[in-house]
Design a binder for these strands. Structure first.
Lengths: 344, 344
DNA sequence: TTGTAGGCGTTATCAA
DNA sequence: TTGATAACGCCTACAA
């Protein structure tokens, strides 16, 4: 409750009886300042509750030690987990993370790019690779390096992720090996979301390879909530002959589907099998536990941080790092009913 | 791939053949600039890929239109939900949100306060009220207004939240009204977490009021994961005579407890009742659905934004806004077993 | 309506 | 080891 104004370097310098240069040095390279002076300065800093102004600092030093991340939504356990380790890795390098969200909207993503660029982000983490050329062009123009995560991208750019399509295909192959022929899918919204689109394509390709016509694989897109998953499940379960397995684009949709199945009086996996994708904690808590694809989020966040740091330092980097996924077999995938299902 | 350096106001001015002042005006108060000039300038902005530098801008204008939020963890659906609406409300006022996390560590929270203060946050959203005096003192010294959310705080300060203690007590009263006498609790970690502590106290006070000795109400603290909830449930279910109901500090712990109950072959609610707190989406998906306390996160985030904006504008504000909670009765709370339970 | 010029808080260069 | 002082990119009186 002393003086109310925000203290500046000048205030500290005056209080400590030194020049602003010395105060600055105390903060940035303390060993260049002799101990007694330094102690006096630090006491003044403490006493005044001084915190360096980021703007001034960035302006003068031309660096910010800041990296930004733009994720589709915070409302999603999956990105949260990956970001957490991304941030941890970053802070080991003394970098601060700024998080923004795009709401799955490319225009908003672009806005956030400008916000983060304006705030001096030295580099950016983006999710996936589906975005207008103009957005990436913008970053290149400003010389801001960026890495895409959660998938492996296309021709150019830097990526840390996994092959969503291949992983989904492998899971579908396993489903088919269980004897299923009447597959259905609850996909995430594929618009500007390469992860969702790739997973769907993976399932489709495996089905086609097994001689299942594309028209015989109903796909419903659903947003990222239990409710949407349940609603989609309702649609699919109305189809005759009923699908014997529903493959879901992510675990949240899968759990919503499980709930709907229960409501409909369908036993999982006896009456209908269900699979997920991501292996979030939730997958191990539902009953039966969810058969899904494990994505090592922490490892991905970590690797993304390493890659971005290297890009910022202009050190040599691999263009893409593939994180292996694994199919986790639990209880929701079984053989199809042999009675031919509920005929229509 | 033209020139690589980050364009400045000067570059734009030169490209458009005007002064920097005019460019600045185009960006900040376009109506002060005549149309032809403005168009020429905006084209130059576009062509160069110019984005104003936040540091320079903040320095010169002495405002940032930024507010910060420090939450315990991003790894928690509950804060994510509230933050989302906080952010939405903020952006309607043209403010940008900077999010930081403290990991439930007061020292780290303090660090983040300094980071956000340095970055020019005009105001701060904090969670709860349990923090060292020195932290709030720091903010006051810098003249940074802040509001606490998720609880109602103490003597002074501004808060948007609810009475965790009273809500937990009401739920406990309902539990007792169902006939339960052998209560147990899985509490969140109470260290520097007033929400967790208050909820525990609420249950305890209701139990005492019903003549249940404090010693007869076992409480196990557990961190915020399904696993921790399950582990705690294991401990509680080993007690003889076995508790007939386990009240949990949040829904995540409750779902972990449900899973453990299933593993132990205990039916919910026949063998043991379970209650949660928060009413996250998950609560409606488990089987049976979770009896819990609904907390209107979106409303809270919204109200917090309104309050903070007013504080920043130095408009008059109520010191605390209480958001009502509601008990949601679903399937996990039933009467206790009448056979006297599994005796020891 | 537009331009000129000073200053915001910090760092970094150069002397002392 | 320390101190002057000139940038850094932008905004905003004030002047034209």
């Amino acid at each position: 409750m002393t003086d109310t104004a925000k203290p500046t370097l000048d205030d500290v310098a005056r209080a400590a009886g030194v020049s602003t240069a010395t105060v600055s040095r105390c903060l940035n390279s303390p060993d260049q300042v002799i101990a007694p002076t330094r102690i006096r300065v630090m006491q003044a800093v403490e006493a005044l509750g001084y915190t360096p102004d980021f703007g001034g600092r960035a302006l003068a030093s031309r660096r910010t030690n800041t990296v930004g991340a733009i994720i589709p939504t915070m409302d999603n356990a999956i990105f949260a987990r990956g970001l957490q380790s991304f941030q941890e890795a970053l802070s080991r390098f003394g970098k601060t993370l700024l998080v923004a969200s795009s709401n799955y909207d490319p225009a908003r993503e672009r806005e956030q790019m400008e916000v983060l660029a304006g705030r001096g982000a030295d580099g950016l983490l983006l999710i996936g690779s589906a975005r207008p050329e103009s957005s990436t062009e913008y970053l290149r123009r400003r010389g801001i390096p960026f890495v895409g995560a959660w998938n492996l991208g296309g021709e150019d750019g830097y990526f840390v992720g996994f092959d969503n399509r291949a992983a989904a295909a492998r899971l579908a192959e396993m489903v088919i090996a269980h004897g299923h022929r009447r597959l259905a899918m609850i996909a995430g919204i594929s618009f500007m979301n390469d992860r969702a689109a790739d997973r769907t394509e993976g399932v489709r390709s495996a089905a086609e390879a097994a001689g299942i016509a594309r028209a015989d694989l109903p796909v419903v897109e659903a947003a990222y909530t239990f409710e949407d998953g349940a609603r989609a499940m309702g649609e699919l379960m109305a189809i005759r002959p009923r699908p014997t397995v529903v493959m879901c684009g992510n675990d949240v949709l899968a759990v919503g589907a499980m709930q709907k199945a229960r409501e409909l009086g369908l036993k999982v996996p006896d009456d209908v099998s269900i699979t997920g994708f991501d292996d979030i904690d939730l997958a191990g808590v539902v009953d039966p536990k969810l058969t899904t694809v494990r994505v090592p989020h922490r490892r991905m966040g970590q690797a993304a941080a390493d890659m971005l740091i290297k890009l910022i330092k202009k050190e040599p980097v691999e263009r893409r790092i593939e994180i292996p996924t694994a199919i986790i077999e639990r209880g929701t995938l079984g053989p199809p009913r042999t009675d031919g299902g509920a005929g229509g």
